[in-house]
């Protein structure tokens, strides 16, 4: 199936700014779904709040646009009641690691079979550029006019530490690699996290004098790498891929054991 058939064309053009990386990430995700020929009715896409979370409205699956940071709890409910469904969470850096940070680490700990795609634009774009837990140290934001003195989360390390069984990072500047990383996450049984680096020319780029969307994409291309020897660059690729019992399987067995299979 052509990946563009998974879009709700009557909702497009989307609200994202010209040159925003979120559309590139969404396209990579849809191509990964199209390659697997997933049926629209067998997929549930859940999102929270923020620029990234508008994505759920543009895709023609079962979709749920929920409260800020709470995409994973809603997705947990869907997955527990319908373990046969492919449940995907589209979220942002702020939505996943600040407001929903607690939900994120506990879903990882449980190894629930969700695919979580974190659109990381390093800022809260929708609400005009406040710094997020993933805004780099001494980078600027509307609420950090002299530079953000906090150190950011490394989402890959966070997910790894919390127990996610598939962890990868991709970037809008490398759409083919991103598509493959998302695809492997969809195939993996267990909690899969894919960080997708995305450019925000309107707030993050402007506040940090990174120039146009073109220049930001070029920056990504030069400062992130798919190489196994990344050096000082941001590494892209698959960092964790391990097998561990999946949560809905365990709950199913547990319910059978206490109810005697009735």
């Amino acid at each position: 199936m052509n990946y563009k058939n998974y879009l709700r064309w009557n909702k497009l053009p989307h609200i994202w700014c010209p040159g925003c990386g979120h559309g590139i990430v969404l396209g990579a995700f849809l191509r990964a779904v199209a390659q697997r020929e997933l049926n629209k009715d067998d997929v549930a896409v859940v999102s929270g709040i923020g620029c990234s979370s508008r994505a759920a409205g543009y895709v023609d699956f079962n979709t749920l646009h929920t409260a800020h940071g709470r995409a994973i709890p809603f997705a947990t409910g869907i997955k527990l009641s319908r373990p046969d469904m492919k449940v995907i969470v589209l979220t942002g850096d702020g939505d996943a690691t600040a407001i929903g940070g607690n939900h994120f680490i506990h879903a990882a700990r449980r190894n629930l079979d969700l695919t979580v795609i974190v659109f990381n634009n390093n800022i809260y774009g929708m609400t005009s550029g406040q710094f997020s837990p993933m805004t780099p140290h001494i980078n600027f934001a509307t609420t950090a006019p002299h530079g953000n003195f906090d150190y950011p989360f490394d989402l890959v390390e966070l997910a790894k530490g919390a127990g996610a069984t598939y962890v990868a990072r991709g970037a809008a500047a490398y759409p083919r690699q991103l598509e493959k990383a998302i695809g492997q996450g969809l195939d993996h049984e267990g909690f899969s996290v894919i960080e997708a680096m995305s450019q925000c020319p309107t707030y993050y780029g402007r506040k940090n004098k990174m120039g146009t969307a073109e220049q930001m994409l070029k920056w990504q291309k030069e400062n992130a790498t798919v190489s196994s020897n990344p050096g000082e660059k941001i590494p892209l690729g698959v960092f964790v891929q391990v097998e561990r019992p999946e949560y809905t399987k365990l709950t199913g067995q547990f319910i059978d054991s206490v109810s005697g299979g009735k």
Partner: peptide, 9 residues
């Protein structure tokens, strides 16, 4: 590459 990099489909 243009198709994959187009954020607006």
């Amino acid at each position: 590459l243009c198709e994959w990099h187009c954020p607006d489909f």
